[in-house]
């Protein structure tokens, strides 16, 4: 089963093509990271799935139902945490959550689940406070609770940790991971790439409204043509051999990081070059690139392509 399918999706705002020819699938049960620089089209893609916007072309389906034709089913299946910190200043946290549950047709018996959400998101003290009087981080937590009141199978979080302190970020990820373990599909956008790397099992990278990479996280990282070689040298102030200089990406005293192209720059050759000039190697290890490096490379490459 697939949670969300985008087929040939285009979205235009006047002359701006915010999304073009989007084709991919979010597998059911996955923890899906939707990444991309500002303005890449992540939120637009989410809005299309949630029915907040309509595709100019193509179709989106959620759990096998078309988001336009079977909107009741698809909206019931989705829980969306919007990127903007929006709230209704007329109501308290509990009132708002109950209203939202009501919109989704949940009976009053769902109120116990609302209390559970309030507890798990650490909002007990604020449950009867007007939303207007909450801090930004608290409002963010209410948005998360609001997205979950109807127990959706697919949860979409659009930058849920923007403006949230470290402690709360950790709690939030723990909570979202629990939701994932309970069998829900999670779709996440974030600019914190280490977080995406540790949480997600699937990654799509958007740039200028196009999907520029889309794979399981492990494969995406492994496919990357570079690896890093970290060296600690017996430092005697000797200059490095000139052949190595272009490979160095970081030098901190005697600690050196080199970026090697897997099929071109061999580790053996680097070591030979150092031995030739009598620089002793005290320690050595290799490191695969992280998501952040992969992300930067891929978006830079695709920027070159689109800007000629």
């Amino acid at each position: 089963m697939t949670a969300i399918v985008f087929s040939n999706v285009y979205k235009r705002f006047g002359r701006l093509e915010a999304l073009s020819n989007i084709n991919f699938t979010v597998p059911e049960g996955s923890f899906f990271g939707l990444l991309g620089p500002n303005g890449a089209g992540k939120s637009t893609l989410i809005n299309l799935s949630a029915g907040l916007a309509r595709a100019s072309q193509g179709s989106v389906s959620v759990l096998g139902n078309d988001v336009q034709r079977d909107y009741r089913k698809t909206r019931q299946a989705l829980g969306v945490v919007p990127q903007e910190l929006v709230y209704d200043p007329f109501f308290s946290v509990r009132e708002m959550l109950r209203l939202q549950a009501g919109y989704f047709g949940c009976p009053p018996s769902s109120h116990s689940y609302i209390d559970e959400l309030i507890e798990r998101l650490d909002l007990i003290d604020k449950a009867d406070t007007n939303l207007h009087d909450l801090s930004g981080g608290m409002k963010r937590r209410v948005l998360v609770a609001q997205a979950l009141v109807h127990r959706p199978q697919v949860v979409i979080l659009d930058e849920p940790t923007a403006g949230v302190d470290v402690e709360l970020r950790k709690n939030l990820w723990q909570f979202v991971s629990e939701l994932h373990r309970e069998g829900r599909t999670i779709v996440l956008t974030t600019h914190y790439l280490e977080e995406a790397e540790s949480l997600c099992d699937q990654i799509a990278i958007l740039n200028h409204g196009r999907v520029v990479a889309m794979d399981e996280k492990e494969r995406l990282l492994a496919r990357h043509p570079h690896q890093f070689l970290c060296l600690t040298l017996g430092c005697e102030g000797k200059p490095l051999p000139s052949a190595l200089a272009p490979l160095v990406v970081k030098q901190d005293g005697c600690e050196l990081t080199l970026k090697l192209k897997r099929d071109q720059d061999k580790i053996g050759a680097v070591l030979d070059a150092l031995r030739d000039v009598d620089i002793p190697i005290l320690e050595l290890h290799t490191r695969d690139p992280g998501l952040e490096e992969v992300f930067i490379d891929i978006t830079a490459q695709t920027n070159e392509v689109t800007h000629g």
């Binding site: 909107y71 009741r72 903007e84 047709g105």
Partner: peptide, 12 residues
């Protein structure tokens, strides 16, 4: 204020 989104997300 943008909170219309809560209504628009719901199956109403």
């Amino acid at each position: 204020t943008g909170n219309l989104v809560f209504l628009l997300l719901s199956p109403i």
